[in-house]
Amino acid sequence: MSLRDRPRSEQLLIVCGVAGLLVGAAFAPIVWDRATEPEGTVAVVEMHGTITGETATAVTDNLREARQNDSIDAVVLDINSPGGTAAASEQLYLSVKRTQQEMPVVTSVTGMAASGGYYMTAPADHIYVTPASSVGSVGVRAVLPPDGAPPGEITTGPDKGSTATDAETRRRVETLRRAFVGSVVEERNGTLDLTASELSYAKLYSGARGVEVGLADSVGGIDAAVDDAAAQASLARHDVVRMESPQPSILGQLGLSAPDQAVAGSAVSTQPTFDYRGVDTVQYLMVHGSVADPQTEVNPNATR
């Protein structure tokens, strides 16, 4: 029985049914996309290499963008840094802390989070490490220039060259230590199994030991960190966007002074990236390892 032989009401029903299918099929891709669309984005912000004013600014910008961008719901910090200058490390700490107040921040220590590198790690909601990665070295050092003004230089005051007396420099280092240690104790409140005095030894701990003493939370890779961040932001489906660490200088890219990136289990060798061109000044560093200057206030400690 053909369609023409059917009653008129049935003909209309069939035509409407077919038309409905066609229209539905036309909308199907849109509905599919909507149904499978990610609910949000997890931004992976890198901090690889030494912390200088330049690298800290780039990472701070990335974190600010994460806060401003509506599509980003959580941040994962990918940290592999031996630290750097004290001032830049404090900037990063404040930036991470500010971001953590807005959205979940989870850290994955992919190599080393030492000294200033740990400073910016501390405010995270959760810190993932691997057995071979390392955390800690919570300490500050002041690298002192040689005494006295060099010949051929006239200054307007006795402290213009050295910036301060030795006693004042010691007090300043102590001030920075209190801020650093106090911040870590504050951020890791409840999980830290070290006293402020023990933390001040500035030991660098292996990842496994870091979990034990409470400087990290659990063992896991960066994917675990991303999943955790998404879960904390209540994202059933999520995209991942990576905000890469600033590239080293041109010389570094040419391999002339490139920082050695950490292979699993090996230490990162620090580079003298803190040169103040042509001027020798007191430098306050939050960096792990030995700086090529005998006059250091805080000695590094061996990895346990």
Partner: peptide
């Protein structure tokens, strides 16, 4: 939609608790 976050209040950065007492000289 711009950054509406506020500057974090860091207790350990308060100058009162930070600055060490100089040794009498």
């Amino acid at each position: 939609l711009t950054d509406t976050s506020t500057q974090p209040d860091v207790e350990s950065f308060q100058p009162d608790s930070l600055l060490p007492t100089p040794v009498a000289d």
